[in-house]
Write a protein that binds this DNA or RNA. Sequence first.
DNA 1: AATGCCGGGCG
DNA 2: CGCCCGGCATT
Length: 372
Amino acid sequence: MSPKLKTVESQASLGVVVPKPGRSWGGLQPPGRVAAPGWDLDPKRQGRALPHSPWGYGPAVGGGFAGLDFAPPQKPEPRAPSAHIPVPAHRAPQGKARPDEVMAAAALTSLSTSPLLLGAPAAAFSPEPGLASWQEPLVQPPGSYSSGSSGDWGWDPASEQSSPCTPSPPLPPEAAHFLFGEPAPRKRKSSVQVLFQCLWKRCGKVLSTASGMQRHIRLVHLGRQAEPEQSDGEEDFYYTELDIGLDTLTDGLSSLTPVSPVASTPPAFPHLELPGLLHPLASPPPPVLSSARPPQACHSDHSYQGCLAPPRLEPQPGTGRACVPALPSKLGANLRKPRGDAKKCRKVYGVERRALWCTACRWKKACRRFLD
DNA sequence: AATGCCGGGCG
DNA sequence: CGCCCGGCATT
């Protein structure tokens, strides 16, 4: 009879995705990245049936939500946000190393633990090379501004108005650390920064810690005040992780080749909470470019991981294109937009996870999540 | 071939 | 409107 049973899909996605009435965006992402579990769907024809359980990422997660009748997800196993990345506690100096090696090792060890050599921030990371350390208390110098929000920073593309430039101090060294790499100075290579992005409809807030994100969701969206302890874990459902290739960032930031002259208005990436750094585009003329703002860490290509354009960076649809100073709007020309090179939902999530795309993308419209 | 998305159709 | 897709420009 009916050729396509699209209703099935929509219901499936909506039903599953929306634990609460009124919310429709179901950009939920399985814990951890791309586990791409049982999506045995055929992206081609097939009426794009969704996988049997869009968010049932395997039993490992506790299989809380596989059906339509799902209730607020069972706490899917306290997702240790960045617990993956097993950092060997320490490369224990081998007993039988050559003397010089031992020396080197010793030197390194002392280096990494000596506060003196590291300047101030020593306090920020525990002696134990830890993710744990940065996850929570990071970005918070012992005695300085410790406002209500206990230690997670974040920036909020959507509710920008709140305070684009929170009265924040010059940017403590810790922050720099955070920006440029990892919390702990060691653990150099192939590092991945994990951020947490709120998936609530028009929010998109990004925080550095899962706990912070949970709190955000709990308070702002769920309107609860409950103690985190007695949370039922529903918040988990409303945010996702963003992986950010730090290497990319570091590269970009440190070795800024004097390229990308004008126009290139790359999406600022999340951690640039620095008031001035943010909004290279939305803000008026660059108040002189002293030596300040680096062109930006990534202006194209492979660095998209670090450039996940924060959803909705633009101030308002109404104001028209206040940004993009140059670019003599060749709009007159019927030409389409040159096709921004920002990675769109499709690329980011892949066809298989179409359900995670923004609506626009799903409808084959201009992507609204990763604006150019 | 894959992507991004305009233009347009349908309920 | 929301939703979807044909089809075309781009990559």
